[in-house]
Structure formats: structure tokens, C-alpha cells
Design a protein around this nucleic acid. Structure first.
Lengths: 155, 155
DNA sequence: AAGAAAAATGAGAATGAATCTCAACAAGGT
DNA sequence: ACCTTGTTGAGATTCATTCTCATTTTTCTT
């Protein structure tokens, strides 16, 4: 890999990313920095494939092994949320925002994020009732969004 | 396939199963009956593999293609719930019981079922707020069950 | 700055769930 | 019993993800 030679911006603005990587007890590499930047980019909800495409602009030589490995580490350490729906490829989302759940349109895939403290509280109740120590949860609502409801062709 | 010849019990108790298959507009076959019986067996939460193993006792010659095909049909028509967690094989569950959600132990895989009308109601609120027409939802709680909490080896 | 030890990378192979193909076969109506 | 049409299953195929391991990079030490 020859890419690392001058890949850092001169007045390196990678502070935050490097810090995250070190927190995980890992070595700082160009690839890991690139993945972090991609994830933090506004779009959210990346598949591994999409991370690859984003990262492959500036750094053509990155392998899927590296992407999957690092995504797994990030998700194990809670920096990233992994969402798997249906049999589709997993989607990874950077956890800046506090916890939230998803409302997905089945027609167009549009995703709304929401957070409902009342629901969270009730979940804890349920867990307590069964004697479980709750670690996390997944709440995914599915429906048809406003736009698609209008578009709908009558059958 | 030679199995079908005398596979039906003499005073066929397959009424219910046959009825379901016909409701789907499908032909009644030994394989489909066997799959239905397996699913309705008490254990619930089957993987395709487990269905295969269960069915393969009395009917050794069943293929995975048949199992997957039929499970998909059943789930599309709402007779079966398909649950996919992590990257694990999908689990299929017969829907006798009314809707419910899951509380899963991360250590041992033990699954509790629960149903909470308050949570359901709040979910509808959320959907309404975003203008979605809700079709269904998945709520999966994860934690450590009572037994595993005790077993826990201090690290 | 140079060297050594340890960790990370990536090409390609391997895995494993799920789907597809298509020739042989069975079900249901007549 | 016949015939049409739907169903089956062995094996190939797909596709996401993980593994392997020789090569390269990072980081620590001096």
C-alpha cells in the first residue's frame, strides 16, 4: 500500500477520528480514517458496499475485508448502529445523535428517525417483569409514507 | 417421489392444514402438510434448517427449495412471522397467537414473548405524526436472562 | 532516523443462507 | 385412468460476509 505517504491533509484535521481509533486500542491507518469520515458524512445508513464506494474515490485501494472488520469493531464498541432488515445487506449508522428508532416506508425505503421516551420506559417495565437485564433494543416500524400513499395505483 | 402413496393417516386428521393450503390457492402435497405440522408443533421459532430436520424424520426426501418456497408463501400471506436477527438464519414462527414481540437473551438465545398494548398505541401515535400508514412493526428487546445473570463469570 | 516487533491490509478463497433452474413427478379435475 | 398444470428437489448460483496468510504499515525503542 503506497497511499499513506501523503494522504493526510497538511494541517491534519483528523483529530477526532484518530482519537476514536485510539480509544479502541487500534492503530491509526488511512483506511480507518477514511471509513470514519465516510460514516460521519451526512447521509447515514450506509451499507458496506456504499462505504466502499464512498471511500474508493480518494483511496481506490481499500478492501472489503478491512471495511467489514472495522465496521464490526465500531458496532461492537457502540460507535455505530448495525441494522439488518429482511435479508438485505446490513446498514451501518454513525451514532452521533442519541438513540432513536426507525420508521421505514416499504414502498420507497424512506427512513424517518424518531425517539419516544414513553416507549423506552415501557420496554424497561417489560424487561423487569421477565427478570432480564436489558442491553439494547430494536424498534422498527413499517408503513407507507405520505408521498407513496398518494402515488398508490388502485388495484 | 414415492413417499406420498400411504403417507396420510387413515382417518386423515389433516383437515386444518389442507384448508390452509387451499386458502392459498395451492395444491395439497405431503411436503406442505409436513411443514405445516412441524411449524405448528409446540417449539416455535424454527429456522429452515430445523424445519428440515423435523420434517426429515417421517419424510426423508424433502428439499430445502421446497421448505424455503413454502415458508416464504406462508409468511407473505401472514400465516407465519419471519424474524431475522443479526446475521443469523431467519426464524419462522406460526401465528396462532395474536401479535407479540420478543425479548431475547444474548447469552443463551432464550426467547420470551410479550405483548404490550400501551407500546402498540404509542407506535401508532408516532406513525400518525409522520403521516405514515402503519403496516407492521418489529420490536426486539435484548438482554441477559435471569439464569445467565447468575451464571456470569466475573471478568 | 533506523530497525524491530506487532498489528493491519487486501486478494482471493471459503462459508453459508437463500434462491433459481429445469427435468421428473404428483395432484386435481374430467 | 387421463391430461393439464402445479410442485418437487438435486445441484448450480447468488450474494453478503468472513477467513487466510503473505505483504505492508504503524508504532515503539534506541
Amino acid at each position: 500500500m503506497e497511499l499513506n505517504r501523503d494522504s493526510q491533509t497538511p494541517y491534519s484535521a483528523d483529530r477526532a477520528e484518530k482519537h476514536i481509533i485510539r480509544k479502541l486500542g487500534l492503530k491509526v491507518t488511512t483506511q480507518r480514517l477514511a471509513i470514519l469520515k465516510a460514516l460521519k458524512g451526512n447521509r447515514g445508513h450506509f451499507t458496506a458496499q456504499e462505504v466502499y464506494e464512498t471511500v474508493s474515490g480518494p483511496y481506490p485501494l481499500i478492501g472489503f475485508a478491512t471495511i467489514y472488520r472495522f465496521l464490526r469493531l465500531l458496532s461492537e464498541h457502540g460507535f455505530v448502529t448495525e441494522v439488518r432488515l429482511g435479508g438485505l445487506p446490513a446498514r451501518y449508522e454513525w451514532k452521533t445523535k442519541q438513540h432513536h428508532d426507525h420508521l421505514t416506508c416499504q414502498q420507497c425505503g424512506f427512513i424517518c428517525e424518531f425517539e419516544d421516551p414513553q416507549i423506552e420506559a415501557l420496554q424497561n417495565e417489560v424487561a423487569k417483569k421477565f427478570g432480564f437485564a436489558l442491553t439494547h433494543h430494536v424498534l422498527e416500524l413499517y408503513g407507507i409514507c405520505t408521498t407513496c400513499q398518494k402515488k398508490r395505483i388502485p388495484t
